[in-house]
Computed example of a mutant assay.
Amino acid sequence: MTTVLVVSIIIVFVVLLLAVITTSKAYSFKHTVDPDPLENNHLLKLNDEKERKQNV
């Protein structure tokens, strides 16, 4: 009975350790997001409008 309990505790600690290591690596990963092409088009249109107003 005690052998089963000891083995179970060891398994719990190994799983807990692996979960902590995996979570730590996930938080240290650098996530990047591509810019939204629609937003860029909108900004380009605003810049064009500003240039036209300045040239008039």
Rank of each mutant, 00 (worst) to 15 (best):
M1C: 06
M1W: 07
T3R: 14
T3I: 12
T3V: 07
T3G: 11
T3S: 15
V4G: 07
L5W: 06
L5G: 03
V6L: 14
V6F: 10
V6S: 07
V7E: 13
S8P: 01
I9F: 05
I10A: 11
I10H: 02
I10M: 11
V12Q: 04
V12F: 11
F13E: 02
F13W: 09
V14T: 06
V14Y: 03
V14D: 00
V15K: 00
L16Y: 06
L17T: 07
L17S: 14
L17Y: 07
L18N: 11
A19V: 05
A19L: 14
A19E: 05
V20C: 08
I21C: 14
I21L: 15
I21A: 15
I21S: 13
T22Q: 13
T23R: 08
T23Y: 10
T23C: 07
S24E: 05
K25D: 03
K25A: 14
A26I: 04
A26N: 09
A26W: 07
A26Q: 05
Y27W: 15
Y27I: 12
S28R: 13
S28G: 09
F29A: 10
H31V: 12
H31P: 06
H31W: 15
V33W: 09
D34G: 02
D34S: 13
D34E: 12
P35Y: 00
P35D: 02
P35K: 01
D36S: 08
P37H: 02
P37R: 02
L38D: 10
L38H: 09
E39D: 13
E39Q: 11
E39H: 09
N40R: 14
N40P: 00
N40E: 15
N41R: 12
N41A: 12
H42N: 08
L43V: 03
L44W: 08
L44Y: 10
K45L: 14
L46Q: 09
L46S: 06
L46R: 04
N47A: 15
N47Q: 14
D48W: 08
D48T: 03
E49D: 08
E49W: 00
E49V: 01
K50D: 03
K50N: 05
E51C: 07
E51P: 00
R52A: 14
R52Y: 04
K53V: 03
K53M: 10
Q54L: 12
N55T: 04
N55A: 14
N55R: 14
